[in-house]
């Protein structure tokens, strides 16, 4: 998925706001067409997979592997993880439903965060100091064994940042 990685780099870091949006949209469309196809068509790549432990909303731990360069959203899709509503905008930085929470030391290893990611993250429920958007995090070997927590989203813990109940 080197192409995805390259696209994401382009899409979210280099291009100015407007062309960024177009790039993001076409990447979204590409993803839509391909999202369930990816597992079967892995390109040649070293088999140095990265282990990721997700903790779902019920507190269950789910351990899966992903390839370096894949985003955590890619991993969730490729591994058929059923986190309701996760990744609604398909990785285009327009929804914050891919919100994940990390331990401090993992968070430090996740790499820099763009203003655009922060902007979307600010809308996430249960925002913490170690929150990130899963679609913006690319796996690296250094993240081996990481734990990513899917935050709860039920009504009573909702903080009404967006003026909503």
């Amino acid at each position: 998925m080197a192409l995805v990685f390259a696209l994401r780099q382009l899409a979210h870091v280099r291009l100015p706001e407007y062309s960024r949006r177009t790039a993001a949209a076409s990447w979204g469309a590409w993803l839509t067409g391909q999202r369930s196809f990816k597992t079967g068509t892995q390109p040649l790549r070293s088999n140095s997979k990265v282990t990721v432990h997700f903790v779902n909303r019920d507190g269950e731990k789910i351990t899966v592997k992903g390839s370096p360069g894949d985003s955590l959203l890619d991993v969730v899709i490729n591994e058929d993880l059923d986190f309701d509503g996760f990744g609604a905008c398909e990785g285009t930085l327009a929804c914050s439903t891919c919100h994940l929470i990390f331990d401090e030391e993992v968070y430090q290893k996740l790499g820099p965060i763009t203003d655009e990611e922060m902007d979307m993250l600010d809308l996430a429920y249960g925002l913490t100091d170690t929150s990130r958007l899963g679609c913006q995090i690319c796996l690296t070997k250094a993240l081996e064994g990481m734990v990513a927590r899917v935050p709860e989203s039920v009504a009573d813990i909702r903080q009404s940042k967006d003026g909503s109940l």
Partner: peptide
């Protein structure tokens, strides 16, 4: 009538 699509999704 407030909330983004994610808010609507959760509710």
């Amino acid at each position: 009538p407030t909330g983004v699509i994610a808010t609507t999704m959760n509710n």
